[in-house]
């Protein structure tokens, strides 16, 4: 038999506080990293940002650059910057529930942190200032982490990067996709 509604609500709240877009515990840690963006290597957005700060934009853009096809892909593959993946994600995040946007911004702070980078992947530099090899190692460490929260964080960044990149018509031919067919004309 379930407990009273009041007990149930308190239990729910305790459980709820442990969770979030990438887990409440992980994101609370982000609050303890006030200087994570102190030396972030910025990139110039194409236009005014709607939700992300310049630092957050730079972190996502740097991660997206490594997540999409890179060094071995050949020159015909566009970069994440060329397809404005970070700009597209900024627009998307401005339109989802504000909590989701806030969670993702905190995740980017955590991902940029050199302190966490040193602990997780042995690289003490901010993500945006790490070498390409160290950036890949950081992504790989989060992807394969034994901590479920880090794996969730990796997926949040990876999915947004891949969604913005692979939904772009510029890559259709590169993956052997002819694109949508011509729609037959029908009355009405």
């Amino acid at each position: 038999m379930p407990g009273t509604q009041g007990e149930s609500s308190r239990l729910d709240r305790r459980r709820f506080l442990k969770r979030g877009l990438v887990g409440g515990g992980l994101l609370l840690c982000a609050g303890a990293l006030p200087f994570a963006f102190r030396s972030t290597l910025r990139r110039r957005p194409r236009g005014p940002l709607r939700l992300l700060s310049a630092d957050e934009y730079a972190v996502f853009a740097a991660a997206a650059a490594r997540l999409v096809p890179g060094d071995g892909a050949g020159p015909h593959w566009p970069t994440a910057d060329a397809l404005d993946c970070a700009g597209k994600v900024d627009v998307l995040l401005a339109e989802v529930h504000p909590d989701m946007g806030s969670d993702f911004r905190r995740l980017l702070r955590l991902f940029e942190s050199g302190v966490l980078g040193a602990v997780v992947a042995g690289s003490p530099r901010p993500f945006t200032r790490a070498s390409a090899a160290d950036q890949d190692a950081r992504l790989e460490a989060w992807r394969r982490s034994r901590f479920a929260l880090l794996r969730s964080g990796y997926q949040a960044i990876k999915r947004l990067a891949h969604a913005s990149y692979y939904s772009s018509p510029e890559i259709y031919a590169l993956v052997g996709y002819p694109g949508p067919p011509v729609v037959p004309k029908v009355p009405g």
Partner: peptide, 10 residues
């Protein structure tokens, strides 16, 4: 991700 992922998508 990256080229490992690309080799599947291709």
């Amino acid at each position: 991700f990256g080229d490992t992922h690309r080799r599947i998508v291709e």
